[in-house]
Design a protein around this nucleic acid. Structure first.
Lengths: 366, 366
DNA sequence: TTGTAGGCGTTATCAG
DNA sequence: CTGATAACGCCTACAA
């Protein structure tokens, strides 16, 4: 049934050594001389200018095909100042950048949209560069625009982001509130999402709900906190600041804070974590202590990463539309780059409550 | 606890409109005139040539810093014929490319390694280009090397891969057996991996084991089939060709073949699927029919994607070292590019059997 | 130690 | 319709 047709590759290396120098790189000059015309005629022909004699046009195209010519994008970029490239910056911390499933899904959507518009993606591997910033790296590479996929990165933000906003480089960020005429900004409705999560919990009878937040600097974290607080207030449940902890989007930190929270002795019947990974940590910590989810304690996460549905108990969570987040960011960016229409920013995408197994009616009598 | 410090961004857009033209782009010419020296002196200074007067050197560096100069990578690439960029090609099919968790983990490792060596990643969004091939796109962009992250893509392979192998462009592929002096090739030991899977099943008492393979063209699929067959033969269990089906790495196809297989009426007690996603499909199909996993039927997958551990039953699978796959591919590529040492290819990485819950002792008496 | 000159492959602006 | 010619920003002999 299966055939070893891959074997065809094996002897395909016959005459590799011919052009050892690397790129033979046939240029318009070559095709010009072969066609007996000038360089500029070739250029105009290849760029589909109207004013060129059909006969010479055909000849040039024919020769171009024969010589297997294709334009040198680098040279073209140099003169046109357009690289057809979108730069992408990820966070540097482990598991919060290119290696995070959430951002991977987002960037995949970005790639699709910008790809259809003729752009490739340049993923910056910003390491070992001292004075380098988003702005300098982008200019250095002459990318046409950039997408920022950052998580809480610390203080250096202010500086770099301000510089970027003032740079005039078209950019869109996800979750990071960039403003400026060349800046776009897309995010989920974190406030309402968090509110939904808490309301779900409240409707289940929970009244003592802990919150494992993200960090203290990201808007994302802040909005989710606000949503948590608002829902509590709406239902006159009162805010207990000691019930709010920071997990920095790290599972282990979330586990630690969960333990701390339980040790306070408060009768917490539900946890809301600002990310699914933290929610998993909460559940793990709870289970280790001997508490059952959802029988004893309910847990809600945020994001709806792939693992959420498979985790056990399957995670009740707030789904972010990762594809839409990425595709919208890309669309907004393209609009900015190509000066098409107004930027209608920020774009705020709705979240969706996904009820699975980690939440249940509160069992504790009040 | 959380502070709204993100607010600082909001008024940061004051003097954005200054350089509306886009990039002011200070060049070495600017530095030269300001320093009262020639362009080439500036160039040599900035490139740390030894033969430059300390005084003028200092002056030039000072001015460069003042003017916030940084080199134009495009211009530099044009003359140096080196872009410090690694191109990446993914498969085009949905869920088998940039959007597949397996490749995402691999590419993340690639990024890390090449990043440390000073290269950025150019993700090709090869769409709408007619005559374009890996080779032409790579030359057009003048990337220094490329990484191929492909799945069974069909016939066009032979052509493109042969062209690439002969092109002299440094490249490494994962799972695709490229050969040639500028080609690298990294894969998991699919044969032994599959063999381990079957031996695990056999040790559990299973004798009638079905195989849901990948496609008919990839070496990966072929090797896994061979491993399956070898293990069966080693244990004198005989090969039943009707027990081998193709799922093309697609969950739905795997489900379909599972149903077909069950309908044959053969007493199949175990399935080995060539990917975790297909294994999940097998389990879903089995469950839908009313068969329990692992009580009635055991299932083994391949890859160990993130979801595998969370799936229920948690998947027994053959783990591929995704990080190592990517990092090795990157290291091999860098060696080829920089002509460091021999290429010691192909690199074959060991797989590991991960026993979880989807396999159990065979319950059916023979 | 420094400047001049030529070129990388294209595009763009002119005359002819 | 076509062909010089000058950029683009940078590098690198070679000459001074």
């Amino acid at each position: 049934m299966l055939r070893a047709s891959h074997i065809i590759y094996e002897n395909a290396t016959k005459n590799v050594s011919e052009n050892k120098g690397g790129c033979p790189m046939v240029s318009i000059k070559d095709i010009a001389s072969k066609a007996g015309v000038s360089i500029s005629t070739v250029s105009r022909t290849l760029n589909h200018y109207a004013d060129v004699n059909p006969r010479t046009r055909d000849k040039i195209f024919k020769i171009a095909k024969e010589l297997n010519y294709f334009p040198n994008a680098v040279a073209r970029s140099l003169v046109q100042k357009k690289t057809h490239t979108i730069g992408v910056f990820f966070g540097n911390k482990t598991n919060s950048g290119f290696d995070h499933p959430f951002f991977q899904d987002v960037i995949s959507a970005v790639r699709e949209v910008v790809g259809n518009a003729g752009y490739d993606l340049l993923v910056f591997t910003n390491k070992n560069k001292e004075r380098a910033t988003y702005t300098t790296l982008s200019k250095e590479r002459s990318v046409d625009g950039i997408v920022l996929l950052l998580t809480g990165e610390g203080k250096k933000w202010d500086h770099q982001l301000t510089e970027l906003q003032e740079s005039g480089i078209p950019c869109t960020a996800i979750d990071v509130p960039l403003v400026g005429e060349k800046c776009g900004f897309v995010e989920s409705d974190n406030f309402s999402g968090a509110k939904q999560a808490i309301e779900h919990l409240i409707s289940l009878g929970h009244t003592t709900i802990a919150f494992i937040g993200g960090d203290e600097i990201s808007k994302t974290s802040f909005d989710r906190l606000r949503g948590y607080q608002q829902a509590l207030m709406d239902h006159k449940l009162g805010l207990d600041p000691t019930l709010v902890r920071l997990g920095y989007f790290i599972k282990e930190k979330a586990m630690e804070e969960t333990r701390n929270l339980i040790e306070t002795g408060k009768q917490i019947t539900a946890f809301f974590a600002a990310s699914d990974e933290m929610a998993m940590g909460v559940i793990e910590a709870l289970t280790a202590i001997g508490l059952r989810v959802p029988e004893d304690v309910s847990v809600v996460g945020f994001d709806d990463i792939r693992e959420a549905a498979y985790f056990r108990p399957a995670l009740t969570t707030i789904r972010q539309n990762k594809y839409k987040l990425g595709s919208t960011a890309a669309e907004v960016l393209l609009k900015i780059i190509e000066n098409t229409g107004p930027s209608s920013c920020p774009v705020v995408l709705p979240c969706e409550l996904i009820v699975r197994e980690s939440t249940a009616a509160c069992s504790r009598r009040e």
